[in-house]
Structures are given as C-alpha cells and as structure tokens.
C-alpha cells in the first residue's frame, strides 16, 4: 500500500475508533463521535492538501 490517501483513511479509522471507545460510553454516542472524528480528520487533511498543492516542496 503506497497510497497516501489509503494510509490517511486507515489511520483516521484506527484513531477515531480508539477515541470513540475511550471517551464515550454508549453505543450511539461512540458511533456518532467516531464517524464525526474520522470525517473531520479526512476532510481537514484534504483541505490542507488542497491549500498546499501550489507548494509541492
């Protein structure tokens, strides 16, 4: 796996699952928190990548 994007999605999934179980006790709250955190991580990374696109080095 050499894709930055796949690594980023995998990493976001693992980290958000971890924090969802660490910080929430109910099933629904965990699901909501985990999905929101993963979505934020991916969206912010893509936004940052877009901003940085004109500056490859």
């Amino acid at each position: 796996m050499q894709s930055h994007f796949l690594h980023m999605v995998t990493f976001s999934g693992l980290v958000s699952t971890f924090f969802a179980f660490l910080s929430r006790n109910e099933r629904k709250a965990r699901l909501r928190f985990g999905l929101a955190m993963a979505a934020c991580m991916i969206a912010l990374t893509l936004a940052l990548a877009w901003v940085m696109y004109p500056f490859p080095r």
Binding site: L14, F18, F21, L22
Partner: peptide, 17 residues
C-alpha cells in the same frame, strides 16, 4: 471487556502496520 477487546485490536493493528 468490550473496551479491552476493541483497544487490543486497534493498538495491535496499528503496531502491526
């Protein structure tokens, strides 16, 4: 128990990767 299982899987997966 549930937390323990999830944490084990998540940390071990991250470490194995």
């Amino acid at each position: 128990r549930l937390r323990a299982a999830v944490f084990f899987v998540v940390v071990m997966t991250t470490f194995s990767l």
